[in-house]
């Protein structure tokens, strides 16, 4: 069994600051992490490998520094890491990104073994689009299973897979076939701590680096800015709210008095709520 996991190195969004004058992201000093959602994809891939045997290849597209994210993935126990890096990829939107990644996944198939499953996280925390996984699936003509909460069963000989997919108001049980692309939901599994052996191996491992040509990409116009139908024309900071919150005075008061004052203030702001809350609540 061969599994490819696509990950992305992202700035830790909790620590992002916006420059007050230029309205640009201040990247200096902001630590980068593996997109947290991708860790669930990686963990699920490792579990499937541990159960069915085979190999896990981790793939990322990014600048040379994205090597760090791949090395981290190796410490969790991935078998191989490939960095897709080329300045031609700069400025890729989701369509161009899914093109480059799908070409690289085909090349991984040629160089090593055809993947049975491609995993991605459900989305990234920096772009939030959740569109690259579906894009890869379409380009590689893989069955697309998004928002998977659980892989119920895999039958390698029958090439069958059953998963639970989150949808609005519930979970669908889907029976499908390999090869497929799975985007994994968060919180679905406990992420392992890598073993010491894996950490040592990760430190020694060589990260395979591919440029566009090495990834088998012939048509460079499908990459980067040129291959991106969308263009960012304007970037700006959200307008701050003019008024700050009206503060309930809490000095030298009992907590019940403060609560009373708050409820009165709520009903002053929104008188209609009085009636709605009393009819809706179980009070």
């Amino acid at each position: 069994m061969h599994i490819v996991v696509c990950i992305k190195q992202v700035p830790d969004s909790a620590q992002i600051r916006v420059h007050p004058v230029t309205n640009t992201i201040m990247r200096q000093g902001v630590p980068t992490i593996i997109n947290p959602y991708d860790l669930f994809a990686l963990e699920e891939a490792l579990k499937v490998r541990d159960h069915h045997g085979g190999e896990v290849t981790v793939l990322t597209m990014g600048p040379p520094m994205a090597e760090e994210a791949l090395r981290k993935a190796l410490t969790y126990g991935a078998d191989r890491a490939i960095l897709l890096t080329d300045r031609h990829f700069a400025g890729s939107d989701t369509l161009a990104t899914s093109f480059a990644l799908s070409q690289a996944i085909s090349q991984i198939g040629n160089s090593f073994d055809t993947p049975d499953i491609v995993f991605t996280g459900k989305q990234t925390i920096d772009g939030d689009t959740a569109q690259v996984g579906p894009g890869i699936a379409k380009r590689l003509n893989l069955v697309q299973l998004t928002y998977v909460a659980k892989i119920t069963s895999i039958d390698l000989s029958a090439r069958a897979i059953t998963v639970e997919r989150r949808s609005e108001g519930g979970t669908h049980v889907l029976k499908s076939e390999l090869p497929c692309l799975i985007t994994m939901l968060e919180g679905t599994t406990v992420i392992r701590r890598g073993s010491l052996d894996d950490a040592l191996r990760a430190a020694r491992s060589e990260i395979v680096k591919w440029n566009a040509a090495e990834a088998g990409i012939e048509d460079i116009t499908k990459c980067g800015l040129r291959g991106s139908p969308t263009v960012v024309k304007r970037v700006f900071a959200p307008t701050p709210r003019e008024q700050k919150a009206v503060q309930i005075d809490t000095t030298e008061k009992r907590v019940h008095d403060i609560a009373n004052e708050l409820v009165a203030s709520i009903f002053t702001h929104q008188p209609a709520l009085q009636h709605e809350l009393s009819s809706a609540g179980s009070a």
Binding site: R241, A245, I258, A259, L262, V263, I266, S278
Partner: peptide, 29 residues
Amino acid sequence: IFDFANIGVVADAVSFLPALTEVFIRRLA
């Protein structure tokens, strides 16, 4: 959060929530 909230209460939510619940129960009866 006080930059975009309409009403703010500087308090510890753990002690304040039960009091708020009680006031609502009383007032919505």
